[in-house]
Design a protein around this nucleic acid. Structure first.
Lengths: 136, 136
DNA sequence: CTAGTTGCAAATCATTTGCACTTGC
DNA sequence: GCAAGTGCAAATGATTTGCAACTAG
């Protein structure tokens, strides 16, 4: 498995916590995990890894570009692998479910708007909050 | 001044803290103030109002629909009056400056996307992060 | 009068950090 | 072996809450 290669390329030593956390992010069916989520999975796996380490590793992964951090309106951060292409989010305010989407027209317009305002765009995030099909 | 009417309509008693905070939000040239910002202005005005009250009042104003809360990627919330029309934000990651914009095409597409996913859209927020003209 | 408000201090919650101990290379 | 990485507990920073004193209607 290429997990250790990814870490090496990111300039990070290959350690158990980093491998496990990367693995969890890859295997989870939910693409959007919080530090707590990951910590809980680690506990379930019987791993002896501290919450502080989870936060440290996630921060390093973000800096290395392996994952992205998102701040929805709930007060905590969620992380997802970078490998997929860029997309935005539909967030259910009731059950917390997150769906992804991508709209080329919106992307184009964002670029245009940044240029028109003479901003050098670094990042952008679009979140639509609402009730998902099962909660509405 | 209609400030006290706004409070009454929101079902809130007319008190000094609420009037002052509403006034600050109206008069500030910067439309996006944090609880701390407002607290500091109150101190400068010589008002004896606690930070906890600022938070409580802001929360009530949000619930009453008088103001909106935004969570940019900085870790704290900012508030702005609702009375203006909907708009999105360009945020400078260096100096914190915020500019507003509105793009009808983007708005349309968001509606479309929510419908297509069968989400009942309640709110949406689009933030473009980058370097503003003076920081780039 | 009395329910709603406030100030203050203490409590929370997510996240970060200091430090002595371990581990990868 | 030694710098990098880790666990734990204590620190942080934004925000919230308990409670006794206060005020608008």
């Amino acid at each position: 498995m290429g997990d250790s290669r990814q870490l090496k390329e990111a300039g990070l030593k290959i350690t158990m916590p980093r491998l496990k956390i990367l693995e969890i992010l890859e295997k989870s069916n939910d693409h959007h995990l919080s530090a707590e989520d990951i910590y809980r999975v680690l506990l379930d796996m019987g791993e002896d890894i501290g919450l502080a380490t989870v936060y440290r590793v996630l921060t390093q992964f973000v800096e290395a570009g392996l994952i992205n951090r998102h701040n929805f309106e709930d007060g905590y951060s969620v992380y997802e692998l970078t490998n997929e292409e860029h997309h935005d989010h539909l967030v259910c305010v009731k059950c917390g479910r997150v769906e992804e989407f991508m709209d080329e027209v919106i992307e184009q317009h964002q670029k245009m708007i940044a240029e028109r305002a003479n901003f050098l765009m670094i990042d952008h995030s679009l979140n639509i909050y609402g009730l998902c099909p099962s909660c509405r």
